[in-house]
């Protein structure tokens, strides 16, 4: 791949100048399936090992080790087409990890998984990070997944808009997020702006604002606009708020553009 601009390094290797050496150090788990359903779990990994130059008894031992790790050793001789979605994903993971990569890239790995399988996967990623010290890079558009990472980068339309730990990012919003539901949100937002001198934005039927000491603001605003506010909520900022704050994205009324959260353990 030829980059359109800039330079990139992974594990100290330049992606443009040393692609071959680099490939050796990274494992990739794709969003789409990449296992061959006509082959057994063992055969898929055997094939994968050969692509990385592994062979013979060392490869056999490693395959058994990794299948034990993902809990599929007893299914080693079964064709992958007979596996459930979650099991196939575990084989994908085993494929990506077979050659002991230092960096593991996962592209929206939980897509299409049920909540149980999703939790298992995340638990395993945490083990990888803590015990095997693999750097795990995950892309996701689920904010509750993004919360779990050590370092988070938010990309919007191909540009980096935020980088830091989830705590750092949510802290910078300061104070609370107040959401007001109103019959005429445009009018309400405008009046809040002129009365309280805060930046209120309209998102569909809601008016959203970021304010310190939200609990003190609430009685004032309810008092000021009696009968106009139908519902109200105060919350601590989440990564979703960070996303809105940084991109100015109004997802409710502009159609959904998937925020590309990028997390890095």
């Amino acid at each position: 791949m030829v980059p359109s601009a800039g330079a990139a390094q992974i594990a100290g290797l330049d992606v443009v100048r040393e692609p071959a050496a680099l490939r050796r150090h990274i494992g990739v788990v794709f969003q789409a399936q990449s296992v061959d359903p006509k082959l057994t779990a063992y055969e898929n990994l055997w094939h994968q090992g050969h692509l990385y130059g592994l062979r013979g008894p060392a490869l056999k031992q490693r395959i058994e080790e990794i299948l034990t790790r993902v809990g599929l050793l007893d299914r080693a001789r079964d064709r992958v087409e007979t596996f459930s979605g979650g099991m196939q994903r575990r084989i994908e993971l085993a494929k990506g990890l077979l050659h002991h990569p230092e960096v593991l890239l996962l592209d929206e790995p939980t897509t299409g998984l049920d909540p149980g399988a999703r939790r298992d996967l995340w638990q395993y990623l945490q083990i990888l990070r803590d015990q095997e010290h693999v750097s795990v890079i995950v892309t996701t558009h689920l904010m509750e997944e993004a919360e779990r990472c050590d370092r988070l980068a938010i990309l919007n339309e191909g540009k980096l808009v935020a980088l830091g730990t989830p705590t750092e990012l949510t802290r910078e919003i300061g104070g609370d997020v107040v959401l007001l539901e109103a019959r005429d949100p445009e009018k309400l937002a405008e009046r809040i702006r002129s009365l309280f001198h805060v930046d209120a934005t309209v998102m569909g039927a809601h008016v959203r604002l970021e304010i310190e000491n939200g609990h003190r603001f609430v009685p004032d605003v309810v008092e000021a606009f009696q009968g106009e506010i139908q519902a109200l909520s105060v919350s601590k900022p989440t990564l979703e708020d960070v996303f809105i704050h940084r991109t100015g994205h109004k997802f409710w009324n502009e159609g959904l553009v998937a925020p590309n959260g990028k997390k890095n353990h």
């Binding site: 071959a20 592994l54 050659h99 002991h100 230092e102 010290h133």
Partner: peptide
């Protein structure tokens, strides 16, 4: 990361394998 490729692992798979 301290995870590393075991020393016995080849750097490249070559063409034939």
């Amino acid at each position: 990361a301290t995870a590393s490729i075991p020393a016995t692992y080849p750097q490249s798979a070559g063409v034939m394998l």
